[in-house]
Design a protein around this nucleic acid. Structure first.
Lengths: 108, 108
DNA sequence: CTTGATGAGTAGATTGGCTACATGTTGCCT
DNA sequence: AGGCAACATGTAGCCAATCTACTCATCAAG
């Protein structure tokens, strides 16, 4: 999968995996990998800056903890993040309709 | 629709509209607008550079003509472009599965 | 005692879509 | 006649998100 196909779609995906349970960065990576059937293997240089960006924007809140001698930063969805996720899902539906309207995937 | 959601998806869309008939730039813009139900209103600063890029890459070929006193550059799909379009369609299917696998659009 | 998995992070390059601009024609409306 | 909308093509430069490539640290297995 091409790199910049992800552009603008990563944020709602990240928010989605922490929708029902707070997770730390590494666990978010794994969740994305698992939910995508192994397709979405984010480099840390993509994920961690994205998480900080989402926190700065107020969509995520984080707190540190230590588990088994390892420091974790656990992120949870804020209410603003929940709204952003909902609108992100709606935008995805629109986007999909646009692309498929143009691509006409009926004929391969 | 967010601007950079388009990143990496525009190329196959452009190739798709010239798949069955060659079109000039302005007509491609209109075709995209129509096929997307009015959602995809590309600025010329996006479309024309994209067309040149696709031609440089060998996916499109162009020739000039004059219709009603106006100069047109008409683009048609090359065989390399057809292959690229086919693989672009396939990549879209994968991409859609990835996003929806992560977003789980069942629950809004 | 080295390797792989866990865990978090930064610096810098790339790149493609965007805004804003430049240029010209045709045809309709007032 | 004058002006504006639609038609038609293009460039320069900005911006931001993702990537590569790196650093640093702990723990378990071999």
């Amino acid at each position: 999968m091409k790199a910049d196909a992800l552009r603008g779609h990563l944020d709602p995906m990240i928010l989605a995996v922490v929708e029902h349970e707070p997770l730390h960065g590494y666990a978010i990576m794994e969740a994305l990998l698992e939910r995508s059937g192994g397709e979405l293997d984010l480099p840390t240089g993509t994920l961690y800056p994205a998480l900080r960006r989402l926190e700065r924007a107020g969509y995520l809140a984080s707190e540190w903890s230590t588990v088994g001698g390892r420091k974790r930063r656990t992120y949870q969805l804020t209410s603003a993040g929940a709204k952003m996720l909902a609108s992100g899902k709606q935008e995805w539906v629109t986007f999909r309709a646009v692309v498929e309207g143009v691509l006409r995937p009926g004929q391969p």
